[in-house]
Design a binder for these strands. Structure first.
Lengths: 207, 207
DNA sequence: ACATTGACCGACCGGTCGGTCAAAATAATA
DNA sequence: TATTATTTTGACCGACCGGTCGGTCAATGT
């Protein structure tokens, strides 16, 4: 009976992907549904077959983007066994992911802004909340694992959490400032500087 | 000869101030020139006597807002003499300024976003660049002063600069994450955690 | 061959926006 | 008060927006 069966989920992803590349360049508000349609190679009306509204399209795009971002970093860390090396790899992968192209960073900021503007709306904030929990717990896991292996020396898990929250915040902050100030400082140098005394002091690395 | 003398500069400030209070609540894009006119108690056309476009109004508003922000923090630090206390005061004043109300933080993020979206346009980015230089040099000054007084122990000025850049980035990052995650962690605790090992290690405080 | 389906489309709608401009208001001069 | 230069104004405009909807069409079942 169905003259043409369409995998609705993969179609959603396809449209959201096309949309995201526009969002990354011009932001969410500034991108019109007409542009999205053209970029996706479909009619505008078709978008509304798969998304109730522009907001829903934005939310879905964000979720997919965040997921891919985390997947990339996760797979980079996956292969490394030594805790310190894992932590360094995690940071390096984050730096590379964000600095790969400016548009990635701009997208991240746009996402921040959109989530903040809709901080009351669960549609937007839920996915982001999960993302943060994921990032934090990834770092905490690395630290605690290093702790039991005797590589790090942390008092307790809540201390590891504090370190994780600060590390994640620092990374976002330094990325943001690097872009805003027109790359007026050496990003890698600053990140290494942070890592240096994170490892040397709190974790009493080596001896 | 002029039948009506108008202090153009103060008029600009007055309009920009009225505009900024709206921008803080709803963001730049979402605020219409009609709303700005009503809030400023003037006709819409009058705005265009003092600003060429909405973009110029936004840029001017941002510049004034940033200026007031820095002035506030600067005056808080001004009275303190002991270097370590000055640094703590600087951080505390920043926290208070941002956490005073959510709208301040949302405004800051909106400013970031706007500047990033117009990173090529000098109209927007110039003022922000100066603001960052100001913040960095404020921190560097505190550190270097503490150095000559023997309270801090820093290798050289470039080391102080690295510390300043990282501190500023961390503060913005932690503010941002605190808001986005729905205040899922204790902001003050995290900031103190950072300050603790900033003072205890790099600066080899006390003994 | 032909009926049925649903994916797809783009013209169209109500509404909003930034920006303009002719006219009104204002105030110093004579 | 009449004149004149300047400032202020809000009605108005065209462009554009998100979203809708009647209709088209290719693919399938019979």
């Amino acid at each position: 009976m169905p003259p043409k069966i369409v995998d609705r989920e993969s179609r959603r992803r396809q449209i959201a992907a096309a949309a995201m590349s526009l969002f990354s360049e011009s932001g969410f508000e500034a991108t019109s549904m007409n542009q999205v349609a053209r970029a996706a190679g479909i009619g505008k009306g078709t978008i509304y077959e798969y998304f109730r509204s522009k907001d829903e399209l934005i939310a879905a795009s964000i979720q997919i983007w965040v997921g891919e971002m985390m997947e990339g970093i996760g797979s980079a860390v996956g292969g490394v066994v030594h805790p310190e090396e894992r932590l360094r790899t995690f940071v390096q992968a984050s730096v590379q992911a964000f600095m790969a192209d400016d548009s990635t960073m701009k997208t991240a900021v746009a996402v921040f802004q959109t989530v903040l503007s809709n901080i009351e709306s669960p549609t937007f904030s839920e996915g982001i909340q999960d993302a943060f929990e994921g990032i934090w717990s990834t770092i905490v896991d690395i630290i605690m694992e290093g702790n039991t292996e005797g590589v790090f020396h942390i008092r307790d898990e809540s201390e590891a959490e504090r370190i994780a929250i600060n590390l994640a915040a620092f990374l976002d902050g330094i990325f943001l400032h690097h872009l805003i100030t027109g790359k007026r400082f050496d990003l890698l140098e600053q990140v290494n500087h942070y890592m240096e005394y994170l490892l040397e002091t709190h974790m009493k690395r080596g001896k």
